[in-house]
Design a protein around this nucleic acid. Structure first.
Lengths: 214, 214
DNA sequence: GCCTGTGAAGCTATTCACAGCT
DNA sequence: AGCTGTGAATAGCTTCACAGGC
């Protein structure tokens, strides 16, 4: 139907939606592309381009209707029947994610958590029950889970990814600092905290040198 | 001296270095660009381009010397005298980061943690002492901290960023789901987990549709 | 006048392809 | 033969700039 949309645009749409939720809460009815651009740290042209992807059209006089735009982005990003997520690795990071996503998005909920520690089996953490790894495959299939979050140490990440893919998930959010090998149908997004921190450190140093004169 | 290097290249250099550490541990002496490319999930041409940035030259017969290349990347990325980092917000996410970075990089160490919870003051978490927010400015200045990590809830993130910038940090790694306003000298890198998860969910759905036939 | 939507231009990043080396 | 380093080509993304609308 429509041409493929880049990952960067998808990311920005998620961002737009978040600030739109905020605007809705404040009772704002309309917003212009340049205003939205300031709120997300982008440009007006970029905002308008991204809107082409979702197929939403604003008015030259009133800009975008906040409610309509929010809904349009939702229809574009979300699956109508919702998507379910499994989280594997209930350590500090896993708990942080469970806490953060708990009850936030009805259309994208963490349905089950998994760990190898028997002390955690059956416990409900931030509204999400923790299961033993052995139950992963059956639970993923039964619950129709399509997305997996990997928050285990690096040495277990590949095995976990294999299990999730085998069980039928089609997307992985990987926090382990390593490249995962997965079937090519599976979409993998890495969050590499070490890489990000080293990047910040590098540019901080660069700025320091500039400030000091070369 | 040399032309500016893109953030993407810096990120990949950090990645190369990590896999090179692994190769060193395995006793590998030499590696070709196409082998390194496979290990990081990139292309050989990309690897060679990135090497131009660090100014390291390999041999057409033996490829790259693993030890020399690791050192070269280190000289390029790291500050010779090291850089110190402060982490603000010792919740689950903050603790996960403290655990992960503890003792891993002598040249880039989390020197101090800060929180508002008095129960945490003075406690040492994964080798890092937790201080009250009031001490932030003085400690950052005394310790020569140049990088800040923000792991507080969104509603406190801007205030924390302000304090850190005021104290003189030049780089921020922000986990709060919002855009921070900072002086233009300060480099900010955002890790937006919600955005990443929604991206994964979107592409997982897309793959599902493709698999099922449009 | 000031907005939106969009073709066209511009820019950045990646990949190609080949000279040069061993 | 098979590699590296790199100019040239390509692809992908962003910004410009302007027609069209109120």
């Amino acid at each position: 139907m429509n041409q493929p949309v880049s990952g960067k645009t998808i990311g920005r749409l998620s961002l737009y939606r978040r600030v739109l939720y905020g605007l809705l809460a404040e009772g704002e009815r309309n917003i212009f592309s340049h205003q939205l651009a300031v709120l997300v740290g982008g440009t007006a042209a970029q905002v308008r381009r991204d809107m082409m992807a979702v197929g939403y059209t604003g008015s030259p006089t009133r800009g975008y209707d906040v409610q309509d735009l929010t809904d349009s982005i939702g229809r574009f990003l979300d699956s109508p029947q919702g998507q379910r997520v499994a989280l594997v690795g209930v350590g500090n990071l896993g708990r942080a994610l469970l806490a953060y996503f708990s009850g936030r998005r009805p259309k994208l909920a963490i349905e089950a958590a998994f760990d190898t520690d028997p002390a955690k089996f059956g416990r409900v953490i931030h509204g999400c029950r923790c299961h033993p790894m052995e139950d992963l495959s059956s639970l993923v299939k039964e619950s129709g889970i399509t997305v997996g979050i990997i928050t285990v140490p690096a040495d277990q990440a590949q095995a976990v990814a294999d299990k999730l893919c085998q069980a039928g998930v089609l997307g992985l959010l990987n926090f382990a600092p390593m490249r995962l090998w997965t079937p090519s149908v599976v979409y993998v997004e890495d969050i590499d905290m070490t890489m990000s921190l080293e990047k910040v450190a590098f540019f901080a140093r660069q700025r320091a040198n500039e400030k000091g004169g070369v």
